[in-house]
């Protein structure tokens, strides 16, 4: 479980996160939704400690992350898996080396065990026989998928995904969503996913947190979203006509 308590974050004059408190549950896919620029990425980066919060605390399974020293942070981070919005693959390493990285760094596996594990993770994101390509030779969606394989290679306890399916075709997007949900349940991880894709919300959102202009505006399950009468949430969710129709059918 990850608990965020009253965090604030500003960049100079820009107050991006305002008193955000939220609990992310273990074994569940927790979604953070909100408009572009609402502060989702900043929130996620504060949670993993890439940005320092101005005030407030973050707890990982009751341990206070914000007051940990560097060594303790390093240790808990070995249980993290993170997918960045821009993939952030190591561009001097091949696909295989990218995915292997944590195995080389933190395990005593043999070469053949590592190769098997890498190929298994790559097959789960539908990327076979691309092992020897460099990131510059991949499409945007393929980079994302490699980054997901890299994030899950060591079965993290905490998985963070920033827009895992932006830039992917609908079919692959669903595949990635399912993969995230499956491994979350299989390994009882605490997973936090940033998205503005309503398909994902309906498909995998066990818990949904809606961020509006840097504040937590609403939280609930994906089913409750359709029934909510929160104006900002409705404006966000019912922006597309398809979902509006769904809502109408529901009402009848």
């Amino acid at each position: 479980m990850i608990e965020v308590r009253d965090i604030n974050k500003s960049f100079e004059d820009l107050h991006v996160l305002k008193d955000v408190s939220v609990n992310f549950q273990q074994g569940k896919t927790n979604l953070i939704i909100g408009k572009s620029g609402s502060g989702k990425t900043v929130l996620l980066k504060c949670i993993v400690g890439l940005l320092e919060v101005d005030s407030g605390d973050i707890f990982y399974s009751e341990q206070c992350f914000t007051s940990m020293n560097n060594k303790e942070k390093k240790q808990i981070r070995q249980k993290f898996g993170m997918l960045f919005q821009g993939a952030a693959l190591f561009d001097s390493l091949t696909v295989e080396e990218n995915v292997r990285f944590k195995l080389d760094m933190f395990t005593r596996m043999t070469e053949s065990e590592k190769t098997a594990r890498v190929n298994f993770c790559l097959s789960r994101v539908n990327l076979e026989n691309k092992n020897l390509l460099l990131p510059s030779e991949l499409s945007g969606g393929m980079k994302k998928r490699v980054a997901i394989a890299r994030a899950i290679v060591l079965n993290p306890r905490y998985l963070f995904c920033d827009e895992p399916n932006s830039g992917l075709d609908p079919q692959t997007a669903i595949l990635i969503d399912r993969l995230i949900k499956d491994i979350t349940e299989e390994f009882n991880m605490t997973t936090i996913v940033n998205t503005h894709d309503l398909n994902s919300v309906m498909e995998i959102g066990d818990k949904v947190v809606f961020i509006h202009e840097g504040s937590k505006w609403w939280e609930g399950t994906s089913k409750e979203i359709l029934e909510s009468d929160n104006t900002e949430l409705n404006n966000f969710v019912f922006a597309t006509s398809l979902v509006r129709q769904l809502k109408k059918q529901d009402d009848i």
Partner: peptide, 13 residues
Amino acid sequence: TEQIDALEIMGVN
């Protein structure tokens, strides 16, 4: 391109 952040997140110095 956030590759340094990616290293930090893995618990690598």
